[in-house]
Structure formats: C-alpha cells, structure tokens
Design a protein around this nucleic acid. Sequence first.
DNA 1: CAGGAAGCTGAACACGTGTTTAACCTATTG
DNA 2: CAATAGGTTAAACACGTGTTCAGCTTCCTG
Lengths: 229, 229
Amino acid sequence: MFNLLNMSSTPKRPPDRDEDLTARARIRDAAVECFARHGFDVTVRAIAERAGVSPGLVLHHFGSKAGLRETCDEYVRQTIRETKTEAVTAHGEQTFLQQLAEIDEYSDLLGYVLRSLQAGGPMAVALFEHMVEDIEEYLAKGEEAGTIRPSRDPKARARWLAANGLGSITMLFTLQGLGPDTDFRELLRRATHDIMLPALEVYTEGLLTERTMLDAYLLYISDPPEEPR
Amino acid sequence: MFNLLNMSSTPKRPPDRDEDLTARARIRDAAVECFARHGFDVTVRAIAERAGVSPGLVLHHFGSKAGLRETCDEYVRQTIRETKTEAVTAHGEQTFLQQLAEIDEYSDLLGYVLRSLQAGGPMAVALFEHMVEDIEEYLAKGEEAGTIRPSRDPKARARWLAANGLGSITMLFTLQGLGPDTDFRELLRRATHDIMLPALEVYTEGLLTERTMLDAYLLYISDPPEEPR
DNA sequence: CAGGAAGCTGAACACGTGTTTAACCTATTG
DNA sequence: CAATAGGTTAAACACGTGTTCAGCTTCCTG
C-alpha cells in the first residue's frame, strides 16, 4: 500500500515460454486463462477448445475439473512465490499483485488471483495469510527504524491492513462488471491510483482529530488509555 | 467504522411476520434464506421445498429464477432502506450491516447482502454507492465540527473508506468457509471486533511517522506539498 | 520390425438444471 | 348452480454439464 510509489521497480522477465509446450502444460495455461477471463464456472469444453485439444484429453491429464483447478492453484502459487523471491527484497505488501501486473505475460495470473480472492477457497486463504505475514514483518522493521508507529496489537493491525488492501482491491474489482475482455492490469492500475491519495493521507495524517473514540474503546476493553509515545 | 461503539443502540422490531403469508411472499422469504445460506447457485427445487411448494409455482409467480432473484434484491434493498430511515439518525457508515445483524429476524438479509457483495451485480454497486454517500456526508459533518481531518479529495477518501469497510468485511467473510449453517451475525461480530482496535489506532494516531511518502506522492502528481492545517 | 504404452479423439452417457405444460383444485362471481 | 379465473401440482422436456469409453494414432523400445 505504501511503496506502490516505486514506479521504477524492475520487472522480472518470465521464463521463456516455449511455443510448443507439452499438451498438459498447454491445457494448464489455457485453464488459467479461461478461469481468469470467464470465472471458475467456465466449461471444460471451453478450456479444451482454447488449448486446441479435445475435452476428453483434459480429464485424461487431470482426472477431473477439480483436479485441473488444483493444478492451476498450485501453478499460480508457485509462480507467485518465484516472482516474489526473485524480485528485489524491498517491497511492502500487496506488491505481488503489482508485480504480476507489471509483467505482461502474467496478466492472466493476476486475473486468476483476483477471481480466487473473490470466490474464496484454500488459495485465497493462503494468499491472505501470506500477505499478513509480509505486512507484519514489514511493519516490524519499520517500527524498529522509527518510520512506523507502534501498535497495541501488531498482529491485529497487520490482519486489518491485509484485509483492507486485498479486500478493497477485490471489492472494486467485483463492483466493476467482469467480462471476458476485462483488462485486469488496467483495472488494478486504476484501483491503486484511486486509493493512493486517501490511503497516504490517512496513514500519515490520520482521520480523526480527537482521541475520544480510541480512548473510549480502550477503556471499554479495560485497557487503560495511554499516551502514544 | 467508528461509532460501532454504540453498543446501546435501539434495534427496531421488524413488522410482525404473519405466519400464514401469501405463497408468493413465502417463496420470496425462502429464496432470500436459501440464497443467503447456500449462495446464488442454489436450486429452484431447493427453494421450493423450503417454501413448501412445488417448483412450478416458483416460476409461475416470478417468471424465472432471474426474476425471483430480482424480486429478492428489491425486497432486501427496500427493507434496508426502511431500517435505515426508521433508525436513529446518528449512525455512521456500514452500520446498516450492524443494524441488520442486531435484529434476529434479519439475519438472513445480512447473509444475502454479504453474498451480494461477494458476487457483485447491481445490488452490490447500489449498496456501495449508497455507503459512499453516507460516509461522505458523515465525514463532511465531522469536518465542519472539527472532529474529522480535512482531505485533499474528500470524495476519493469516502470511496476508499467504503471500499475498506465493505471490502475487508467481505474478505474476512469470504476467507471463512461459508456453509449452510454459517452464523452471519456471529461472523460479523467477530470481524468487527478484530478490526476495531487497529482501525481506531490508525484513524486517530496514523500509521506512518514521516510525511516523506505523502509529500513525494503529492509532488509526483504535481500538487505542491502543503502543511496540514 | 513388432508390440505395447502413452497421447489423443469423438461420441456417448448420466445427471442436474431451469423451464414448460396439461391437468386439477378452489373459490369467487354472475 | 355453473362458469370462469387464478392458485397449485406433478410430470415431462430441453439442454448444458462433467465424465466415461472404445478406439485411433504416434512413438518409443526391445
């Protein structure tokens, strides 16, 4: 949410896609694309057609549609992991979405991730928890460095920030009608742009001028109100 | 997000539900319940069974499943509107979810709303835009009263806060596995509880200690950085 | 070269879905 | 009372879906 500002980040080239992949890989890629573009209710036949194979072959390779979905999940997760670890270490949270968006070939992955976050399931949970950890670590370092204010409950704050970042993006994405020709990268760019100013404002200047609400709540949960250092 | 603190609000009794409603109304209610509990992919047959009628009657009254869905949308929207206008005026944003949650008979409506926000569509857009307006008005009043900090772009800030509030709740709700026996009210309570402290913290104390990021961004969008009043 | 395994296909199958239809019941009305 | 309209049902229909299956091709291997 913060260093979305590093517009000058260095996008990593994806591994050269061999144009004649094994059929299994071609089906997998077609599935990711179709899932991203049409949602998870897309037909097995549609995926097969996109991959240029027969519907039977899809099930032959992946057992079932659910199996194909699992494979896609694993593939996307793996790709994200690689992209993250290969990138420069200095990135905050949610940046993995940005990174996906910045690499043209990964635009389908971005769509897949957004749809996963919208639909829920194990992958959404994994992505969320991962992001919570990232933010927590990031904030802890910032706290040490003195750039981040300390919190009475750093874990809760990290979860809240993760839910805000992922949730607001997903919400804006959901509110937009999502068709087969949706440009996920453009959408993400627009969403982050809209969010940038108010987020920075509130995060640096705050929103409330008085401490009454916070103090009242701290009192309510029987935690004596204390001066912020 | 703020005056979630008014634990002592006065829930409005819903209009006495006549136990033998017209079949059309019974189907509508059953549909809302089923949509909330099983999602919008629930079967027409399941709805009919829940209402104690034949599947044919459902279509006879509503034309199609889509028509039934529209009727439910309209009904829920209407109920929310009434609940809001009937309630005390002093409520901030997102509270309409809270209000639904506090009235036992409306727990299905709460689930319906959450599922709508998750799935998107016209109703989600309407709810979101409505909430943006509420927040904007609420913040404007606060700004006048001196309790809310002014913003360089109040509209953008309202949208961001709405996306955060609705998005984070929806996200937490999505991450939870949502089964037929999900207790939406309990879920909402838990989510708001988890969110309360960090939200109040950040909203009153801020998150960043330095202005560098904000100033850099303001400079980036060629808006001369200025001192906050 | 022979043979078998793997890749691959197209058609068929089984099933769940929304929807339609013809008939039945009920009650209001002329 | 008869008739007509609307509520209501059960069964059937049409269709899209995931999946299966028998057979075809291809290519590696002994």
